[in-house]
Amino acid sequence: MNRNSNTYTIVYSTILVVIVAAVLAFVSVKLGPTQQANIDNEKKAALLAAVGVNVEDSQVSKTFDQVVNDAFLVDEAGNKVEGDAFKTDLKTQYDNMRLGKPFVLPVYECTLANGTQVVLLSAYGAGLWGPIWGYISLEKDLETIHGVSFAHQGETPGLGAEIVNPKFMAKFAGKKAIKDGACVFSVVKGEVKDESCQVDGITGATLTSRGLSDMIGSWFEKYIPYLNKCKVEE
């Protein structure tokens, strides 16, 4: 067999490629569901953290089903629309918002173990280096923050990445987010003027803090039509 002939080279590479592709496709199909479950699980854990529920990884899915009564999408006018809230990609909606295209917002209604009812909202925006996103839950009055959980892609460790520090996130609870139908909440740098609706940002991470503040402000603004509707119904 001549190892340098063209035919041999071509046949050899074809066989190799076919075998490799087959093995990879098989593995990817086999492991795909487990991988997707991990991704879903992570998102559920983040959502649960925002309502103040922290459980073991193995319990996340079960707890999530217990806590979340209803999940749905609302449009910019505050009307419920068709769709799966959990599968809605926040980045796509964020891009649509910026481009002025129609968008939808996921809403989760939750009941905690002690009977407290909260509404869980989502947010997505730009930090210093990459996207930051998070979930924010509101008390039954639809004005006060119950809890938050944030995540980021590439903020500086020790500075911007501190937004995911539980100590930082704990500062948000109890703050007034919305007053008279407008978002009043902000993350400020330096001096907190109004304790009731401001959180002190992270030292050394001005731009990430500002991004976080803008993100919360802009998404709340989009949610306000829906929140107002809820209040009227009550």
């Binding site: 190892r3 050899y12 590479s13």
Partner: peptide, 14 residues
């Protein structure tokens, strides 16, 4: 003993 010499690097990479 089977790898064609000319595409050796690519085969290794694969």
């Amino acid at each position: 003993n089977t790898i064609p010499n000319r595409i050796r690097i690519i085969v290794q990479l694969v």
